[in-house]
Amino acid sequence: MKCPFCGKENTRVIDSRPSDDNNSIRRRRQCDECNKRFTTYEKVEAIPLVVIKKDNNREPYDRTKIEAGVFRSCHKRPISVDQINQLVDEIETAIFNREEKEVHSSIIGEIVMDKLKELDPVAYVRFASVYREFKDVNTFMHELKKILDNETTL
């Protein structure tokens, strides 16, 4: 680390502790050349995630969009806010574990549907009907039949 006072690169860490927000490390350093002290902060470099939409437009990842879709799907269902937050956390973890800088919205939608299917079948069908843009009752019934067939095989 270069000393901000004399510009030399011989510095050492004399104290290290978490910062107030717990999202970085505060380090006190001392220059071996001029003996002056200074503070640096070290934090994890977050890779910005870009979502590729259906029309190939790109926009920054926004957790609130997933939250809003899940909340709408779970409306008037016996699902707590804690369960919804945990579900969104799981979805976000699955997205970021892909370690890609860009992800298609279709992949995010599939992850959301998989997680909702495990949580609540009604919430899943609600989300799927909007996400997959069901055009008629037959498409809706086909999706319901798949859920019912899976339940009978368990």
Rank of each mutant, 00 (worst) to 15 (best):
I107H: 05
G69T: 04
T139K: 10
C34H: 10
T153S: 15
P60F: 02
C31D: 05
F71H: 08
A128P: 08
Y41W: 05
K76S: 10
H104N: 01
I107M: 09
E9T: 11
S105W: 05
I47S: 15
D114Y: 12
T139S: 14
H75S: 13
D32M: 07
D120R: 06
F71V: 14
M141N: 08
A94W: 10
E118M: 14
E118N: 02
F38R: 06
Y131E: 06
R126Y: 05
V103M: 11
L116S: 04
P48R: 09
E99H: 03
P18Q: 01
E9K: 07
T40Q: 14
K53T: 08
E59M: 05
N22S: 01
A123C: 04
D89M: 13
V44R: 07
M1W: 10
E9C: 06
Q83G: 10
I107L: 09
A68E: 00
D15E: 10
C3H: 01
G109W: 04
P78Y: 08
F96H: 08
S24W: 00
C6M: 13
L87I: 02
V70R: 04
V103W: 01
F134W: 05
R37S: 10
S80N: 14
G69D: 00
K101W: 09
K8D: 05
V44E: 13
C74H: 11
R17D: 05
R28G: 07
R26Y: 10
R132W: 12
F127K: 03
E143C: 12
E133N: 10
V44S: 11
I111E: 13
R28K: 15
S73A: 15
T139C: 11
P60N: 05
D149Q: 10
P4R: 13
L148I: 15
R29H: 02
A128F: 09
K2W: 06
D21Q: 03
V70L: 03
H104Y: 01
E99Q: 07
T39I: 08
F140W: 12
S24D: 00
F5N: 00
K76L: 13
D55H: 06
E99K: 15
S80V: 06
N10K: 02
N150M: 03
Q86C: 10
E102V: 14
E59I: 11
